[in-house]
Write a protein that binds this DNA or RNA. Structure first.
Lengths: 249, 249
DNA sequence: CGAGCCCTTGAAACTCGTCAATGATCGTGG
DNA sequence: CCACGATCATTGACGAGTTTCAAGGGCTCG
């Protein structure tokens, strides 16, 4: 648990130094651990939003269900991701969150939001954090809107790979990606059938392997080029990630 | 100008009462007026982000250009919209903003962000505001991903109509929408040719008229049903828009 | 009066979705 | 221990929605 909070703090400090009390606010706010199985909803649409939480294991996703029963996945929540720290600001959530694999989360105490409000640095860091996720959402719109199925899948895997690498979950050019082909299809607005075919095409082209929930990318650069992936939108670089002038202020 | 700030304050107060000093912080932060002609960039990708501003007249959009020259519009900025109040938090912007019609904006003074940081209520209101725009972005993803061209265009017009109505720019079931068919195409990830054809289909079906930058919706409810539009994601209702528990805290 | 932008229309090509059926794997209970 | 249902991956054939290419016309503005 300490490892997770340390990592989370490091991640938030990417956007500006946090004081010791700020760091304590995070550490002391961790209340309980909850576990979910695949397809379990962590939060349902229409729920009164409640606590913030941190994903510690597994993949989850934000999604909306359409009247015809189809599902659009709106974004992935990976280990280390902080969920809805400001979520409690809006009355009703307009989408749901569910587990894609078995998932473990750390639920933050309800005082957390008050402590955040009291700290300028913490508020600022969480706003930055939210901005990054908004940037990811924008990139997904571009992905779904303007890329071929081949590029879309490649791009999604580039994003996952890069985000997992940032939290130390990539080894030997490989990482665990517990997504079904249907999950990928719903993320990219493709049919599962077409994802299957395109996945084989990607494998044949040698750009990636994806089997048994294991993603292997031999030559990341080659895949990135083929998929039009540019990691700027993930705002991962420490130091470059924040506007120096804003930090100074 | 006072009308605009009054409206902006009212809009932010949707998310919680603002004190008199908070309101003054907004009023006194307005620095200069700038004007842009269509296709002018207000902010370019890669720019060091700078000031916040308010659109007072015209339509602008966030967009990304793809390597092949195609453009994906990521969201519309309508009169009354506040732009990037937290924008200066991230070092480099990952997208551009340009004028779609002739546009007039009020640029906020650079102290604005400092004054926001000092006020808990203002920070909170701006976070809510950002959350609403994120919700709109999510709905766009659903729109592009899972709806037919007929529904997509209908949905976009429903959103524009509803947002303009909220700022008093709808009269006699009509409003000015200075978008070209190409703008619509780039917003919805369709070709301009197909937008043209679908627009005629919409007109023939009697659901809407769109000619000479003028949008007319006789029976909004009928269009909303046909397009699968549900305005929840715009979080417009005053009072219902915020979580009472969070307000209390 | 010409240039540029926008709207309109037609025909052909293609990507991708739908429908349908088969296998593979796995956990559960009989 | 095996049968069963469930979930997921795979494959083929067909059809539909959209894109692309191409060309023409209307409008505005310099």
């Amino acid at each position: 648990v300490t490892g997770i909070t340390a990592r989370l703090i490091a991640r938030l400090e990417q956007f500006g130094k946090l004081s010791v009390p700020d760091q304590q606010a995070i550490e002391e706010s961790i209340a309980i651990v909850r576990r979910f199985i695949p397809r379990d909803d962590l939060v349902k649409e229409g729920d009164l939003v409640d606590r913030a939480y941190v994903i510690t294991q597994g993949f989850a996703c934000r999604y909306k269900l359409l009247p015809d029963g189809r599902r659009q996945i709106l974004g992935l929540l990976l280990p280390g991701d902080l969920c809805d720290p400001r979520g409690l600001l809006l009355a009703r959530r307009d989408h749901s969150i569910s587990a894609l694999s078995s998932v473990e989360v750390l639920v933050m105490a309800s005082e957390f939001s008050e402590r955040v409000a009291r700290s300028v640095a913490l508020s600022r860091a969480l706003s930055c954090y939210a901005l990054v996720h908004e940037a990811i959402l924008r990139e997904w719109l571009v992905n779904v809107g303007h890329r071929t199925s081949f590029e879309r899948i490649g791009h999604l895997f580039c994003e996952i790979y890069t985000r997992l690498r940032a939290v130390g979950l990539v080894a030997n050019n490989a990482c665990e990606v517990p997504l079904t082909q249907l999950d990928i299809a719903d993320s990219l607005a493709l049919s599962a059938v077409h994802v299957n075919r395109t996945l084989m095409e990607l494998r044949r082209s040698g750009l990636l392997m994806f089997q048994n929930k294991e993603l292997l990318i031999e030559d990341f650069y080659a895949l990135a080029v083929a998929a039009g992936f540019d990691d700027t939108y993930l705002h991962l670089e420490r130091g470059i990630a924040t506007n120096p002038e804003a930090v100074a202020s």
